[in-house]
Design a protein around this nucleic acid. Sequence first.
DNA 1: ATGAAAGCGCTAACAC
DNA 2: GTGTTAGCGCTTTCAT
Lengths: 342, 342
Amino acid sequence: MGVVVKMSDVAHEAGVSKMTVSNVINGRPGASDDTRERVLAAVERLGYRVNTTARHLRAGRTGAIGLLVPHLDGPYYAHLAARLDTLARARGHHVIIERTGASREGELEAISPERVRPYDGLVFSPVQLETADLSGIGVPLVLLGERRLAGPFDHVMMDNVGGADLATTHLIERGSRRLALVGGRPDKGVDSMATLRTRGYRQAHSRAGLPVDEQRVVDADSFTTKDGYEAVMRLHREQVPFDGVVVLTDAAAMGVLRALADIGRRVPDDVQVVGFDNDVEGEYLVPRLTTIDPDNDSMAARIMELLFRRVEARAPLTGDAVEVVTSARLVVRESTRPRALA
Amino acid sequence: MGVVVKMSDVAHEAGVSKMTVSNVINGRPGASDDTRERVLAAVERLGYRVNTTARHLRAGRTGAIGLLVPHLDGPYYAHLAARLDTLARARGHHVIIERTGASREGELEAISPERVRPYDGLVFSPVQLETADLSGIGVPLVLLGERRLAGPFDHVMMDNVGGADLATTHLIERGSRRLALVGGRPDKGVDSMATLRTRGYRQAHSRAGLPVDEQRVVDADSFTTKDGYEAVMRLHREQVPFDGVVVLTDAAAMGVLRALADIGRRVPDDVQVVGFDNDVEGEYLVPRLTTIDPDNDSMAARIMELLFRRVEARAPLTGDAVEVVTSARLVVRESTRPRALA
DNA sequence: ATGAAAGCGCTAACAC
DNA sequence: GTGTTAGCGCTTTCAT
């Protein structure tokens, strides 16, 4: 247990040199099948595992990928972190999470040379910072999230517009004509989750040739369950007619469902509801929530692909920045009707 | 930017040897004040930072602390992870999060020699595993959470019993006599958050000489907002009288507050409510939630203290296991009455 | 009080 | 196809 097996032990056991062991372990060519087998057998027998610290020292790397996120309150970034870490491990790295607090100072500190030095690469979800703030960064960097920063940075974002369009179109196809939007927000030039999803809602309407009734577009502070509940209650109080609700998040959709129950409207018979995010809870609600799956897994995969392209090339900023928008998928469950109405 | 300053550069700049630089940097004795100053000046001027990878290689360590948790759904473990990471960094380490999925297989895999090897130490919140499963572990380990495993392991837990007692006693002192317990669970020998907090509720009653009316002890599936809401609705439907509610979690307390509003009972005038966890949201509820603060920060501090005691001694299991119970604190806000009634 | 040498475990570069 | 040499940046040991 206490004994640590090193490469030279394997070399000795297999009757070869350390270098040959290294070559075999790393799948490099230039070792006969015979030698390869003996080495692998020795590795197996001794239970050898490479010392990544030594490998990183030699390679001039640390093995750490920094994930800079505004907060860890919701499940979103926590899940993303877990997913990214799994992917990083497959490449001999690991993910360190740093909270920026969503403030300009917090973000500036997090990307300062001092703090950034220990990382081989960075995944950053910016809230306040602009392109200029990132100019001197000496580390491979992938941007994440709604904010589209011009510049030489790879950027991965979920398809907020397309997803909301998908959700809205689904409700229209299944017979709703007066669609409320819970969490809608006016488009003031700055992209955010809310403005982008609102754009998708409008886009679907215009494609279907349906007008948007502005009194049905209700803002919802922070997209919590409570906000969703109150948004519906407000519509009800003000007697705004609606037969479908597009909700900006599943959390808020939970509140929407409860509110509809409280005011005696059946889902999906009287009102259809569609959420966004595909939170696990949605599957256990009554009725089970139809929602948009932003496919966070493939988002995480794309992020790591882009990041390691640069990490491995040891080139933080080689001109060709890539922008990836991962495609959203509709998950139909019980809060929308099983098929189109006549 | 691209140039990396190493210790030999500093040594050259200060006109001393690497060894002297190392001594100064690490605060070791045996360097004249004069030399020390020159070295520090050189460090400053060149912007030198130690290469932790090299340091760890030399020390035979990795710098990684593994945090093995069942899941990352709620804010609880996410916050803990962030807190632990901050503390670990102060000691030149960092925290890697691993999800076990709360299953026996998941936990066994996570503590397998293969997976554990890359860590200098482990913080583990066990759900299924028993002492025997941890027997051969060759890494410093601190256990975390409700489950009290016999054995040579340090263990840190929050004071669930004391906290619930504190909450219950507070309600009694402020004049409630018929206290409901939302999330209560019968004590079947296996300790869990729910059974421990239930014990505190009973303990406070018996100390105050008050009987516990079992029909007021309501189970709540998974302590979500919805569970809390439904628990109160059930009490209401079954016409169980109550003038105070102890809720096992703040999340559930949110549902309790809404339910009380729905059935027209004023808080704290008709019914007092106290939660547990001191979630940030509690401060923004209407009324603001009185709650128990489990002091997660000092819990995190104790965990790291205990862990590094072993990491630095390079002794995973030196006989003297410590069990720490961090003390809970009452946070009085608006959901309980400002002072004792006559 | 300070320094020189050796080596942590691995791999790039160059023999053989 | 395989081995040898050298060195990544740091710290332990032993001299001075």
